[in-house]
Design a protein around this nucleic acid. Sequence first.
DNA 1: CCGCCCTGTTAATGAGCGTTAACTCCTGTC
DNA 2: GACAGGAGTTAACGCTCATTAACAGGGCGG
Lengths: 217, 217
Amino acid sequence: MGGMLNAQVPSALSRRDQIRKEAARLFAARGFLGVGVDEIGKAVGISGPGLYRHFSGKDAMLADLLVGISERLLEEGRRRAGDAPDALGALDALIGGHVDFALDDRDLIILHDRELLHLKEEDRRRVRRLQRGYVELWVDVVRQAFPALAEDGAEQTARAAVHAVFGLLNSTPHSAGPQLAQGERSGLSRDGMAALLHSLALGAFAAAAGGAADVTG
Amino acid sequence: MGGMLNAQVPSALSRRDQIRKEAARLFAARGFLGVGVDEIGKAVGISGPGLYRHFSGKDAMLADLLVGISERLLEEGRRRAGDAPDALGALDALIGGHVDFALDDRDLIILHDRELLHLKEEDRRRVRRLQRGYVELWVDVVRQAFPALAEDGAEQTARAAVHAVFGLLNSTPHSAGPQLAQGERSGLSRDGMAALLHSLALGAFAAAAGGAADVTG
DNA sequence: CCGCCCTGTTAATGAGCGTTAACTCCTGTC
DNA sequence: GACAGGAGTTAACGCTCATTAACAGGGCGG
């Protein structure tokens, strides 16, 4: 069954991408340590050790997923924020991008902060560096959008608020069960949920800027 | 080394509580499946299988922790909300209680929604029932506090907002490293962080009530 | 047409781990 | 003072599981 050039025909994922997708799904559902390689193999139609032709090991699959999502988030975030006309527009763009990600790639969002500890030190450092960059991007934009958070001493407040809003935006995976059909997620449509999350995030930032800019402890 | 009556002297935890505490710490740090019983034993000064004198198995320790936290959250939440004079006061009390919990029992908050899947079906159902009760408590209070969310069709919005705010309030464990000293958490004092989280949560709910009450899609 | 290599397969290996068994010691009670 | 039982110990069992070894087939360049 070899050598068919792995044509990148649309709608047909490469074997490697197939593995990525199924591994993400399984890791999200039962945890990295709770999934065996045989199971991942079965999910893509090959069996167990055949995976080692595509990844150097189980750890490497997780590392690939986490590095990939972190890079995509940072890259997309920079692009969107850069294309915006002003600070508030940039914040809107960041929120919208993150919401899309949280709603459309739930598995990866779950893994993103749940399985970080199972990475080897080197990969973990790399992912953390990317995450830190993403946070700083948000912090900069938020401080420009809300002048109260740009004051001296409000940087830690802004950073904590950004972390908290990430928790808010990433909450959708937790609120729904393992998997629901596409149209329905707890009674709200995908776009309804997106709009709601967007509102909640903006409201939270506004509150941080309004009341607690000087709570630097 | 047995039979010292296990006196409930203050400042001395019972062996069982010692195990609870250390198991929670280890599970939070490296995941339920990533921690061996020998390690938990060593953390409390006994070794490996000695734990089986206090818990029927490793699963039982996790179940004990998750059931315990879920019960405490629901019980405390009901008590606080019941003692409040009005709906807004009840919401304040709920937020304050949850914030205290998130800041003071980080390990349990992490486990609470991270390791649920490693419970046996029966325990999982029990924890989920408690969690559902807690969510409904919040939903009721939020809808009373914000009339816009009490309208017909806004129930799903309110519930989604509550889930999202839980994600926000539970974000502190993720934002800080494994463990920091008591005084400092990312530059904000404990009380500063508590005040900030409180503001963020209220701001989010206000935004949900203001703009998106009819986004039932 | 030959041979390389990509992609699979199954079998074996070796480590880790939860749990149980068998045994010891100490303490409070009758 | 015997003794029942709580609270430990170490050794052994059985199972899972990631990884490696050894082998096979089929397509494509030469």
